[in-house]
Amino acid sequence: MPILERMSNNMLKLENVFVNYANIQVLHGINIEVKAGEIVTIIGANGAGKSTTLKAISGLIPKTLNSSIKFLDEDITSLQAEKVVERGISLSPEGRRIFPDLTVTENLEMGAYLRAKDKEGVKNDMKEVFTMFPRLEERKKQSGKTLSGGEQQMLAIARALMAKPKLLMLDEPSTGLAPLIVKDIFEIIKQVNKKGTTVLLVEQNAKIALSVADRGYVLKNGNIVMEDTGKNLLKNELIRAAYLGESTYKEKKA
């Protein structure tokens, strides 16, 4: 794979990662690499283990022995979630999970929780986030629960960005949103990436995810079954059949 050789600066490396829920194994030793500056996506059906992968990286769930997760060449396998953020990995979790009774501003402040001493920097970043999401600025004094679904998703991403992460992980940012808003959000993800943040994206909406991603992994029943560039995966017949809806594709061709 030439693309792997071209970008050799490794940011995140998962090797042989196993995760168990009670007695059920959910991830069966997966290997994933993310290089600095990339957008990498993990696609797969419901229950394939996509969210589990992100939770495992972010330290929310324990990994079994022999699993190895390295971030910037340092081992973070057994770090707890609150320590993983400190290293520079932010997760915008599945279901948004904004703080419903905190205002938009307070939610963003919580995103920058670990940067409390850098008041000037936090202020500037909040301005920057507000230019990226003008809707949030209009509603900055409203509590999180009064926002619409799209605004909540924007807030979740904005909140993750406030930690100034080196790696931004997004769990299903398109869920439950109108197509136009999904487009906006992916436009912003591209913008964020252009400004230098590496992105690891988990999506059920494979089409839009692959169209922005440099590389993609296909996760099936807790195994990585395919990995390639975003473009190649979009063209791949198997992927089209399984995740993009082959019949629609054939109809269009005809």
Binding site: S58, L60, P93, F99, D101, M110
Partner: peptide, 17 residues
């Protein structure tokens, strides 16, 4: 504020550090 955040969503609070 972080105590209120913790009360509202403990897991999300951990993700904030």
């Amino acid at each position: 504020k972080s105590m209120r955040a913790t009360a509202q969503d403990r897991e999300a609070a951990r993700l904030m550090g």
